[in-house]
Amino acid sequence: MSGHARPRSGAALPARRLSALAAMALTACAGVAFGQAMSTGTDHAALTLSIGAEVAQQVSLSLPVSTLTFDLVGGGAAADGADCVIGATVTDTAVVGPALGPTTLAPAGVTFALDGAAVTFTGGDRAAAGTTPGDQREVCFKDFTLTAFSNVPGWQLSVDRLPGPGGRGIERLYVGAACPPVGGGGFYLLREGDSAPLVLAPSRDACRDVRVVVGVRPAGEGGGMSTASLRYTLLAPGDAFGVAPR
């Protein structure tokens, strides 16, 4: 029989519990708790934060008005706030664009130009208020600002003519566009089913607010209401871009 007394089995902690406690202590010293980052020092502590932004590809168009009306009754279109010009010719003349650019038309020889916030017309004289809309050289214009947004480099604005909501279709409808503060030129003659490119923006900042000028030839229209619908489309290259219509 041994003379040494053996310690009771419950006197010392099991080895498994000892190692678990040691592991917890080591974790606390390292300064990382589950789901948190921690830094400790005597007089300084620092942590890194990740900040990320994901901007989705997006294009957007905004029109200030949904209907553009040329009221040629009574005092003529000039009384309706339109800019009516008596051009130099009865026919439309070609306007040669820049190299490899599209060729546009000058209705009755009239072209437009942007001058800051104003639109000016050259190639004719302004029609006086009250002028009877019978002169075939008369062209009447209205303009508005179309707001375009794209966060993708390079975009194109085009227009399609669709059937109007009622009445006859407008005989001769002209559409032109330019990017402020300067620009201008000729127009596209759009018949029903036609489409035309209005603005080609090589970069995002090349053009934001597009000035669109719409013209009609009152002498070519019959009595009653003549209508047309114009659909403006903004296209940008790139994958998976979204369209946010307004």
């Binding site: 300064g31 708790a33 789901g35 948190q36 980052a37 921690m38 830094s39 400790t40 020092g41 005597t42 007089d43 300084h44 502590a45 620092a46 942590l47 934060l49 990740s50 900040i51 990320g52 932004a53 994901e54 901007v55 989705a56 997006q58 979204g242």
Partner: peptide, 16 residues
């Protein structure tokens, strides 16, 4: 001792 701690997360902005 001077210590700071924050959740382990990314500060994200999803613009869409």
């Amino acid at each position: 001792t001077l210590s700071i701690r924050v959740p382990t997360t990314t500060i994200s902005f999803v613009i869409a």
